[in-house]
Nucleic acid binder design. Structure first.
Lengths: 140, 140
DNA sequence: TTGCGTGCAAAGGTTTTGCATGGCA
DNA sequence: TGCCATGCAAAACCTTTGCACGCAA
């Protein structure tokens, strides 16, 4: 489970990770893609390092993690210092598995306008709210 | 990828599965829990069978699948013949990992009322819309 | 020097797949 | 009889963990 508590040291890996992720701002990136990128440029950064750094960045709020399907890889998005309670909408096609990443906006409007704009017909809406539950907040 | 096209034959396994799932209507059940249940009652139903049947039921709209975290098991909920575009809201605590399953309702209202009702403070909202994309619909 | 960060490999958990067998229509 | 369903085991995948070593402060 992800536990708050940022990074202590500044390292080359983390700098390289952020630099790469900034080039892909607004996109969805998987750990595998990141790993491939660094192998392609001759770095030996391992997946464990990538996971550990991404998890810290998620805890720090510079990164968002999306899970669209069990068994398939999570997607990460770099959001820098732009904190806040943004909404993110992903459309997953139940036939081809493609994920459409549509603009953020009000969920209600988007749901109504989505079909005429993009042709995507919604069958099911799943919403997950991330936060801290009452019990955990009482624990200190 | 899940492909539409329901079940052809009626089998004991499927009947037993549905019977069990009906006893847990409105709850979130994992494949592992189902497997444990059937082992406990002396059935030899394997996980592959459970996965294959659940996938078909999801395609048929009698079952819903929820994925809250990558690497952890998906949750299934039996919804019988009650089709429709219901909304489902799950609250995941980033500290303890617990998942609160709150009542269905308008996302906007719930988000506003959630904290005073349950103490859960929202940090992030993730919405996934499941459906069929324009390209797949054109393919017939 | 102290403790965190890293790389590698192994382990853990979930889901899918191959294949021979058994069951439904 | 002809598919489909099933069980079992293996494989495939994603993610986490253990451990020794390296590096930042």
């Amino acid at each position: 489970m992800a536990v708050k508590g940022g990074m202590q040291y500044k390292t080359k890996n983390r700098d390289a990770l952020i630099a790469y992720l900034q080039t892909r701002e607004g996109e969805h990136v998987t750990v595998n893609e990141i790993h491939d990128h660094f192998r392609a440029v001759g770095s030996s950064m391992g997946v464990a390092t990538i996971y550990r750094n991404l998890e810290k960045m998620v805890a720090d709020g510079q990164m968002r993690k999306y899970v669209v399907d069990s068994g398939s890889a999570a997607c990460f998005e770099y959001i820098g210092a732009q904190h806040g309670h943004a909404r993110f909408i992903h459309c997953k096609c139940e036939k081809c598995g493609r994920i459409l990443h549509i603009d953020r906006g009000e969920i209600e409007e988007m749901a109504r306008l989505l079909e005429e704009r993009s042709g995507f017909r919604i069958d099911n809406v799943q919403t997950v709210l991330y936060g801290i539950c009452g019990e955990c907040r009482e624990q200190k």
